[in-house]
Amino acid sequence: MKILVTVKRVTDYERKVKIAPDGKSLLTDGMSFVANPFDEIAVEEALRLNKAHGGEVVVVSVGPKDSTQEIRKALAMGAHRGILVTAETVDSDVYARALQQLVEKEQPELVIMGKQNTDDDANQEGQLLAGYLNWPQATFASKEAGLDSADEKAQKPGLVVDNGQLTVVREADGGLEHLSVDLPAIVTTDLRLNQPRFASLPGIMKAKKKKVEEFSLGDLGVDPAPKLTYVAYSEPKERQAGQIVENIDALVDRLRNEAKVI
């Protein structure tokens, strides 16, 4: 089975982002970048499916040229080859349209993506791609048995492929849904689908010999104009220090009249 899996280069969530003086962009100087953590879960799932069913895992990134670092990491985890689509500004729509072209070129049976990219948290790339391709989608894939289960320790995939059909356990507000979709399909991953492996040192050494193709948006015939404009950024409000109240009446009064939560 051929699986296409995404790794987007995103700002490191352990670092505080800084807003540029114009208030319309983020400073990238001194910022560090990592692979989108939801995408790492997608890569892990693709590798487990590959172990069970064979085939190929192709890692795709859309973004700046330095995204090859995140592609290399996925290759070190065990993916077979990489494709980088270089792009300056990427909103969800540009991202989905670039992926659409790659899917049509590569013809995978399955695309696995993080449910969202932790830089803008838009949570719509998988859905947009499914729309553009007119493919079925199963979003927020999770693992019913949980991350402490024997299945997880045995590195079993949470996605079940059988006879051209894919079964996905999906996290919904009221509990878990079991979806069945026809392949080819788009799956987006939630946090509890698996725990990604560390790239081993032999994996790291092999990664440098693996092929990474590079295209521009223009090469793929994708209109680079984003549909989304960032108007302004602002810092979150600083948290106020806690207060110690004298008694329960005072607490109720503050909650009702000051915090306005009851």
Partner: peptide, 29 residues
């Protein structure tokens, strides 16, 4: 990703997120 979102993530899943936000020991970063 903002710090608040980061905290949200780690609260959602404890410290099990790969290379996650959860800080270890007393060290912040």
């Amino acid at each position: 990703m903002s710090e608040a979102q980061c905290l949200g993530l780690s609260a959602e899943k404890g410290s099990s997120l790969h290379s996650g936000c959860a800080t270890v020991g007393q060290a912040v970063d």
